[in-house]
Computed example of a mutant assay.
Amino acid sequence: MIEVDCPSPAKPRVSITYCTQCQWLLRAGWMAQELLSTFRDELGEVALIPGTGGIFVIQCGADTIWDRTRDGGFPDVKTLKQRVRDRLAPERDLGHIDRP
């Protein structure tokens, strides 16, 4: 028997929609791991969603954190963590990431 725990409704969900044609699964998985490590207490889940057509979109709830087409390419991990932090816990210090 497999038990599946649903994420807490009080904790937000981040989704990463990535292009399977472009083989961006590893990039999406790495970014998911970085977010789960940094925001382990703030996030309910990070979902990887396969797509096509060059899509790479990261959303936190209904908010678009990053869109490859709109924002130009891919976020570096510093920018991604800062944008997620700004939505989840704006007062939180990300340590060395926040230093110039």
Rank of each mutant, 00 (worst) to 15 (best):
I2S: 12
E3V: 13
V4E: 11
V4I: 15
D5W: 11
D5V: 13
P7M: 09
P7F: 05
S8H: 10
P9V: 07
P9N: 08
A10L: 14
K11F: 07
K11R: 14
K11T: 06
P12E: 08
P12N: 11
R13I: 13
R13G: 04
V14Y: 01
I16V: 11
I16W: 00
I16C: 01
T17R: 10
T17W: 01
T17H: 06
Y18L: 04
Y18E: 03
C19G: 07
T20V: 14
T20A: 09
T20W: 06
C22T: 11
C22L: 11
Q23H: 15
W24D: 01
L25G: 03
L25C: 06
L26Y: 13
R27E: 05
A28D: 04
A28I: 03
G29C: 03
G29Q: 05
W30L: 12
M31G: 00
A32N: 03
E34N: 06
L36A: 07
F39V: 01
F39R: 00
R40H: 10
R40K: 13
R40D: 05
D41F: 09
D41V: 07
L43Q: 00
G44E: 10
E45L: 07
E45G: 05
E45P: 01
A47M: 10
I49Q: 12
T52F: 08
G54R: 07
G54I: 06
I55D: 07
F56G: 00
V57H: 05
I58F: 02
Q59E: 13
Q59D: 12
C60L: 15
C60N: 05
G61R: 10
A62Y: 11
D63Q: 14
D63K: 13
D63G: 06
T64H: 11
T64M: 13
I65C: 02
W66L: 02
D67K: 08
D67L: 10
R68G: 06
T69F: 14
T69P: 01
R70I: 15
R70V: 15
R70C: 12
D71K: 06
D71Y: 05
D71M: 08
G72N: 10
G72Q: 09
G73H: 11
P75N: 08
V77E: 07
V77H: 04
K78E: 12
T79Q: 08
K81C: 08
K81A: 05
Q82R: 12
Q82M: 12
R83M: 09
V84N: 00
V84M: 01
V84T: 02
R85L: 02
R85A: 01
R87H: 14
P90C: 09
P90M: 08
R92S: 06
R92G: 04
D93M: 09
L94E: 02
G95P: 02
I97V: 13
D98V: 04
R99V: 09
R99K: 12
R99L: 11
P100K: 14
P100R: 15
